[in-house]
Write a protein that binds this DNA or RNA. Structure first.
Lengths: 144, 144
DNA sequence: CTGCTATTGAAACCTATTCTCAATAAGAAG
DNA sequence: CTTCTTATTGAGAATAGGTTTCAATAGCAG
C-alpha cells in the first residue's frame, strides 16, 4: 500500500474527505525525498493548482500528523520552522551546519536504544523523539 | 568560580558591561534549577526591578548563549518556545508528557555516544545536540 | 569627572503558524 | 442524478514568540 493509499484511508477513517488539494500535497510528499517546509510545499503545489492556499497546506500537514502519517521535524539550531517527512520505519534525524546551513540526515540505532532506556527507566511511553544536532560540516570545519 | 563570576568575566572579555539588569538575570539563572523561558524570567526579574524589559531578558540570554554559558532548549512536541539552562558538565535532556505537559529531565550516556558516532562517521564537529522526547508520563499512561 | 559607546525601555516590526468566516464541494442518502 | 449535510477551502485577520529600532541612559576606561 502506497503512502497515498494509506493516507486516503486514514483520512476517510477519521471521517474526513479526500480533496484535490490534499491529493496534490500527498503526491508531493510521496515523490520528494527532501525535508520540505509548508512554504516550499505550497510553492510546489501551486504548479498544479494556482489557487491552493498556504493555510490549506498547513491544515493538511496537521491532519496527516494527527493520523500518524507524517512527522514534523526541526533543524537545529533554528527551531522556528517545521519540516515534514513521511513516517518511515527507519527514522531519520538531522545534522545542520551552523555555517553553510547544509542538512545532513543520519540514522542511528542509538536513538532506538535511548527510547528503550527511557521507557524502562522513567516508566514512560515514548511517542516521538526529536533530535537536532548542529555544528560544523566537513567542509566548513576545514575552512575555519 | 560561580556561574555569575564566570558570566561577568565572559561578558567583560567580550567587551561588554555588567549592568544591574544582567546581574538580576544571572542571579535568577543561578539560583533556579528549573527550565525557565524568557517570560518567566522576566516575571521573576520584575520583582527586583519593576521596569526591566522583556527585550533585555531576551538580549541577555542571547549574549549568554553566545558566550557559551547558557543553552537554549526546546520541549517536544511544542518547539515554539525556548527554555534556558546554564551549561553543565552533564547535559540534561527533557521528556514532555503530551497529556499533562509535565517535563521530566533525564541524562543518558547514549547522547554522548551519539555525538561521538556522528563526529566519527559524518566527519562533522558537533556543537550542540537537542533532544526532545514526548509521549505519556507514568501517571497519564495508566489513566488512559 | 568626562567621553565614548554598550545597554536599556518602549514600541514597532517580523515571521511562522493558526484562526475566522463565508463560500464551496465531498460524498452519503434518496 | 439530485439533495443535503458538513468537512474543507481561500482570503485575510489574528496570534505568538522573538528581534529590531531608536532615542535616552549609564558602565567604565582614562
Amino acid at each position: 500500500m502506497t503512502f497515498q493509499e494509506k493516507a486516503s484511508q486514514a483520512i476517510r477513517e477519521a471521517g474526513g474527505r479526500m480533496t484535490a488539494q490534499r491529493q496534490i500535497i500527498l503526491e508531493l510528499l510521496e515523490t520528494s525525498d527532501e525535508h520540505l517546509d509548508a512554504e516550499e510545499l505550497h510553492r510546489r503545489a501551486r504548479v498544479q493548482d494556482t489557487s491552493i492556499s498556504l493555510a490549506t497546506v498547513y491544515r493538511t500537514l496537521n491532519t496527516l500528523e494527527e493520523a500518524g502519517l507524517v512527522q514534523q521535524r526541526y533543524h537545529s539550531p533554528e527551531h522556528s520552522r517545521k519540516y515534514v517527512e513521511p513516517v518511515h520505519a527507519d527514522e531519520e534525524y538531522h545534522f545542520t551546519c551552523r555555517t553553510c546551513h547544509r542538512v545532513i540526515p543520519f540514522h542511528s540505532e542509538l536513538m532506538q536504544q535511548l527510547k528503550q532506556q527511557l521507557e524502562a527507566e522513567l516508566n514512560v511511553q515514548v511517542f516521538n523523539a526529536c533530535v537536532c544536532v548542529d555544528g560544523l560540516c566537513p567542509d566548513c570545519r576545514v575552512s575555519s
